[in-house]
Amino acid sequence: MFFFILRRLGQSLLVMAIVSAVSFSLFNFVGDPVNNMVGQDATREQRIEIRQQLGLDDPILSQYTRFLGNMVQGDFGLSYRIKRPVDDLILERLPATLELVFVSAVIALVVGITLGIYTGIRRGTWASRAILSVSLIGVSLPTFIIGIALIYLFAVHLRWLPSSGRSGTIDFGWWKTSLLTVDGWRAIILPAITLSLFQLTLILRLVRAEMLEVIQTDFIKFARARGLSERAVNFRHALRNTLVPVITIIGLNTGGLIAFSVITETVFQWPGTGLMFIQAVDFVDVPIMAAYLVFVALLFVVINLVVDILYFIVDPRIRLGG
């Protein structure tokens, strides 16, 4: 157990080292950092002074170690465009993204697992077939098209829900939540559904496939032969054994949700980190791009690590084999 986690930890550190190297080279090779910090009419002396302040004339390796040191402390310098510390900007926008991701993950999980179990147990009914066909379409639909369609239907046509932005926020220190007011929920529901649909279909298909496979195994037949109720067989025995791959997918998909929040946030103008990233790419705001890259990689690494450890707890076979 200990060595297993240690090895995973080593791999995670390697990932972070490579990602931080990429993000460091972004600073050095994309655009001229000095040009981005001073105006067009800065004098030669001012430029040289800033170069020295930033330590751009130091050897590349010492620049990298300094970058790493700052990174560990969450310091990515000032945004070129907004001239404010990048870590503040990210922290400010993080609650919006996390709430969006949280709500969509709940939707995807609850609806996905429920429909997955249903279509797995009651295969061949017309409802199962309909759900499966719709889910295939769901996989083919790009996120932004789902977003546009929902906006057109519920915001432009029916006028039930707002089409963009986040509203009804309540402050808790630095965390602004929109989950406590009706307005906030009205604003979050469309982006959350948009973001969840793709993951929902994935979870649905996975749970269904796993259920179909598990139901054919001997221990399920034996459970039936023992005369256990249908309910006990399906949920106590079958569902439990489908959970290992489902946990993996859920873990990896939380990362996917964060990635696709870039698209969803742009479609709905949701003021989260994804929208900030896209705007940063538009304006070549390197500090934000670099910080976001490191931030996402860190999230992924942590999630993967948690998933691996969960495996250990859920599946005794891995525990014994490892």
Partner: peptide, 14 residues
């Protein structure tokens, strides 16, 4: 492996 930890669409945008 490292590349697979970062979602494709983000990497493509970058």
């Amino acid at each position: 492996d490292v590349q697979l930890t970062i979602p494709g669409i983000l990497l493509a945008i970058l």
